[in-house]
Write a protein that binds this DNA or RNA. Sequence first.
DNA 1: ATTGATAATTCAAATGATTTGAGTTAATCC
DNA 2: GGATTAACTCAAATCATTTGAATTATCAAT
Lengths: 388, 388
Amino acid sequence: MIVQTKPKGSNAERSRYRNRQAVLGQVREAGAIGRAEIARALSLTTQTVSNIIAELCHDGMLLEKGRRSVGRGLPAMQYALNPKGGYALGIEVRPDAIFAALLDMQGNAVATERVALRGNRPDAVMDHVSHLQTQMLDQEPVARNRMLGAGVVMPGPFGVTGITGMGSDLTGWQEIDAEALFAERLGLPVVLSNDANAAAMAERINGVAQGIASFAYLYFGAGLGLGLVHDGQLVRGAYGNAGEIGHIPIPGLGGKLEDALSRLSVQSHLRRAGKEARDIDMLDRLFQQRDPDLMAWLETATTALGHAMAIVENIFDPQAVVLGGAMPDAILDHLVTRTPLTDLSVSNRPHAPHPRLIRGASGRMTATLGAAALILNRALGAPGSNVH
Amino acid sequence: MIVQTKPKGSNAERSRYRNRQAVLGQVREAGAIGRAEIARALSLTTQTVSNIIAELCHDGMLLEKGRRSVGRGLPAMQYALNPKGGYALGIEVRPDAIFAALLDMQGNAVATERVALRGNRPDAVMDHVSHLQTQMLDQEPVARNRMLGAGVVMPGPFGVTGITGMGSDLTGWQEIDAEALFAERLGLPVVLSNDANAAAMAERINGVAQGIASFAYLYFGAGLGLGLVHDGQLVRGAYGNAGEIGHIPIPGLGGKLEDALSRLSVQSHLRRAGKEARDIDMLDRLFQQRDPDLMAWLETATTALGHAMAIVENIFDPQAVVLGGAMPDAILDHLVTRTPLTDLSVSNRPHAPHPRLIRGASGRMTATLGAAALILNRALGAPGSNVH
DNA sequence: ATTGATAATTCAAATGATTTGAGTTAATCC
DNA sequence: GGATTAACTCAAATCATTTGAATTATCAAT
C-alpha cells in the first residue's frame, strides 16, 4: 500500500532498456538529432548509440530525417521520433462518465471518446473501457500492435494500486486492485493516477511545461488539486495521495482552500446569487458579461490563489507553477494576471527564465490526455526514471 | 543553476557501481544478511552478489558475521557493515561558528568539533575547515583513506553549487561555487545543502526515520525549515530551495508561519515579556518552570504547527512528519503531544504504521550530523538514487 | 543412523551490452 | 587540392551478469 520504489540491481538487459529510453528521450527533446550528439549527452559511445538507434529504427520508433551539415566533418544523420511508432491510451473514470484518448508518440491525440456512465461499479466500467479501447483502435489501426501502455485517472483517494477506504465517489471500488484490473482487461501495462498528476504530465509532454523538469500544476477539478513534478518525475507521496492542496485550511476563514478556489466553489457562490453555471461555457459567458457575482468570486479566488502560490513556491521551489483544468481559458488568464504574487518567496528571483504562474491547458479532456502522457513520460526516459 | 539530474546512459561499470551501492544498502537495512537474500531483494543472481560481496569484503566495507541457520539447507553466511569501512565528514557553516562531525559507516559520530568564527568570508572559513578536517582525522586515523565525501550545510538561499544573491547571512559568498571550493580544499566529493534537509537525512540514517522512505522533517533553525524526503531522496526543488515553509504567510495574522513557530519567535516573544532565552538550556529551564509567557507562546505555536502539519500532510502525503532542531526535547515533546492534527487530511488513516508527528533529534549538532548523513545516504544506495 | 529434501554457495562457461581502436566517408578550412 | 574535422562503421576486446552443474551443510523423515 505504500508507494516505494524498491531498488533493483542492474544488468546488461536492464542497461539496454534504460539506454533505449534515454535515447528516445533525447530525440524527443531535440526534435531531430544525430547519433554523436546523443552519445555525448548520455555519456555513451557513438557505437552504442548507433546500435540502439538501428534497433529503434527497425522497431519503427525512429525515422531518418536526412543529414544536416552544421560545420566541419561528416554531417550527422538526423533522427526524429516516428509519431506512429508508439501509442498510449488515456482513460479517465468519473462518477458519471468515462473519457478516453489515444495519444501518439509525439503526444498528439489521434482519437478521443466518451461514454456516459449509469452505474460505476467495476464490472460495468470495465465493459465500457474495453469497448472504448476497441473503438479507438479501429480509428487508428496502426496503433494496435504499438501500444506502450495505458494511464488511468480516477477520483481518489487511493493507494498505489487501487482506491482505498474513505469517501471515494466511486462505489464498489474500495480495496480493489484497480491497476491490475485495468491491466488485465486492456492487456497493457497500466499506471494509475489522480487528475492533477495526470494533467501535470500532459503539460510536460505536450504543453507549456515542455522541457521544464520541476514544476507544479494547480488543477481545477471538482476541488483543487496539485500535481508535483520533480526532476521529470511525479512526486506521489508515500501513499500516492500527495497534492491535496485544496484540503489545506485557511486559518482566518475557517474553511479550506478549495472553498474559495474550485469549480464547486464558483458554482455554489453563483447559486447563492440565484445563478446557475452548469458547465465551463456558461461560466465563460458570465465572465464575458463581467457578471458582478462572478467578479466578486474572482476577487476572493485571486486571494486564495495567491495563498496557494505562496505555499507551493516556498515548499517546492518549482521553476514555474501551471494553472489549468476545468475553467474557461478567459478565467484562467484572469487569475494568472490578477493574482498577487508575494515578494517573499524563494521563487521571486530577478532573472527567472519562466513566469512564476503560467496558464496551462483547460477543458474537460486535460486529465484524460494527461493519463496517456504518464505512459509517454515513462517511455521517453524522464531524467530521474529508473529501470523497473 | 537549476538542479536537474541529467539522464546518463548505463554501462557495465556503472551497473557494477550501482549494484555495489544497492548491496551495501541492503546490508545496512538488514543489519546482518546473507548473499542469497540480498540477491532476491535486488533481483540479481547469487553469483553476482557473491562477486560484489567478495569485493566489498576485500575493500573492508563488509565483515563476515558467521553462519546463521534458519531452517533447512546450508546456513547462510551473514554479512554486516564494517563501521570503520567508510567515513563521512559533516560541516556546518554558521554566520558565527563552524561545526564539524565525522561519522562512520553506521552513522555513529566518532568525532565532533566546533570553532567560533570572527569573519565568515570564504578564505577564512576554508582555513578553519581545513584545520578541522585534520583535527578530526587525527582522532580517527583509520578514516584517512576511507573518506566517502563531505556534506556541507550553509545558510541559504542558494543554487545548486553556491549561495546566490539575496540576503544570505554570510558575506562574500554570493555567486561563489561553494561546492567546488569545499571539494577542492577537502579533497573530497561534496554535497551542499540547507540545515533542514541535512537534519532530515540524519533522522533517516541514524534516527527515528530509519526505514521510512518518504517523510518530512520540520526543523527549528533560526526560522522554520522543512526537509522533504521522497522515496529515500531529498526533494530539493528546481533551484535547491525547497522547504522554506517558514516563509508561508498565515492569512489571518498578517505574518509568516515562522513568526509563530521558530527559535527567533520564542526569543522575541519572551523578550517582549522582559525575559531572555539565549540558548536551548534557558528555554528548557523556563519550560520546566512552566513559565506563563513561554506557555502562552506554546499555545500559539501549537496552532501554527497544526497549520504547518496540514500543509505538509496534504501536499506531500508523507509516512510521518518529524519535528526537531534547536529546541529542548521537552518542548518538542510538548508540541508533538499537544498539537491538534486535523482529521481532514490524507494522512489521517486508520491503521497507520507510524504516528503522524514524531519527535526527532534536537540540539545544536543535528544539522552537522545530517550533513555527513547526506553522504552516507548516497553511498548506501537509497531507493531512488541514480548512477552519477 | 541413514536417506532425501532443501538451500546457500562456488566454479566454469556462456551471454549481452558496451567500449576500444582502426578505418571510411564527407564536409569545411586554408 | 590537401589538411583538418567530425560522424560513422566494423571487428575485436572487455566487463559484469547470467546460466547450469557441482558442492556443502542443515533439517526432516524413515
